[in-house]
Design a protein around this nucleic acid. Structure first.
Lengths: 139, 139
DNA sequence: CCTAATGGTTGATGATGTCAACTATTGAGT
DNA sequence: ACTCAATAGTTGACATCATCAACCATTAGG
């Protein structure tokens, strides 16, 4: 594939547009749940029933560990997340969602379905194709 | 389409994953160009040769106008963007990229092609399909 | 053991984002 | 033409996000 391949270029252009559109719409969506974009990101990454070490969170967010400290401080003070010491390694603290956190996360994911209903524009077959392609793309 | 339709659910889940993955990778990518994620967003939105009023930028970023002031201040002080008074309405200031800004924007868009080469995993036909579907989705 | 590496916190600092108050300009009614 | 409300952008105060350097506790290797 040439770097200037028109198909790839168009696909890439649209993916960037999708990304930046979502990026612009996240703050107001987050505000409705009294969250910040960064907090949404964290909530998205902590799956219910899957405790996540703080270091792993920092790694996935690709940010400094000290940033995670503050982020979790605020989420914890709002009762959405709990820090628990790891049994295996006493340096490590793992994060898990509180019941409130689980509920809010579900609400968040529910509302993040792009702008209202754009997915409805696709046929079942197109959605299937989109899933297949994105799966490969994100591998 | 039911809210629980499995196809829609899977597609939506993947799109969110794509979004958050990009969101996590943007800061380090931006840092390599001495930019912040927000500055990348602005640079993406100001197309070369298409002056953009500040108010319109605030609208598209879905943020407060005062935020745009600071954002543009920093970009302008780095010589990437220029403020010009609008001839039609003296309240309005339109933004345009400087030659340096145009170059940096091109570099940015070039480097934002997801993690290295994942687009290569798709066949030309798949890319074509992806373009068609995304176009409909973002319409 | 001693020492180096790791996980997380703290403090300082800059960027991002909001809100309220302000200035300048525009536009609509009368 | 004149007044007055609405609009575009800036400023200042403040919370959040993000980085870095320094630090403490714990772990792991020699």
């Amino acid at each position: 594939m040439k770097p200037t391949d028109p198909g790839a270029c168009a696909a890439w252009h649209l993916l960037m547009q999708f990304f930046f559109t979502q990026r612009a719409s996240l703050p107001s969506l987050a505000a409705k749940l009294d969250l910040s974009p960064a907090q949404c990101h964290v909530l998205h990454l902590i799956e219910p029933g899957r405790p996540l070490p703080m270091g792993r969170l920092a790694e996935t967010l690709a940010c400094d560990a000290s940033n995670v400290t503050g982020l979790v401080d605020r989420l914890e003070s709002r009762g959405l997340v709990r820090r628990r010491p790891s049994a295996a390694d006493r340096r490590v603290k793992v994060l898990e969602l509180t019941p409130t956190g689980v509920r809010l996360r579900a609400l968040l994911l529910d509302r993040m379905t792009t702008p209202p209903d754009t997915l409805d524009r696709l046929s079942a077959r197109e959605r299937q194709t989109l899933v297949r392609i994105l799966t490969r793309l994100l591998g």
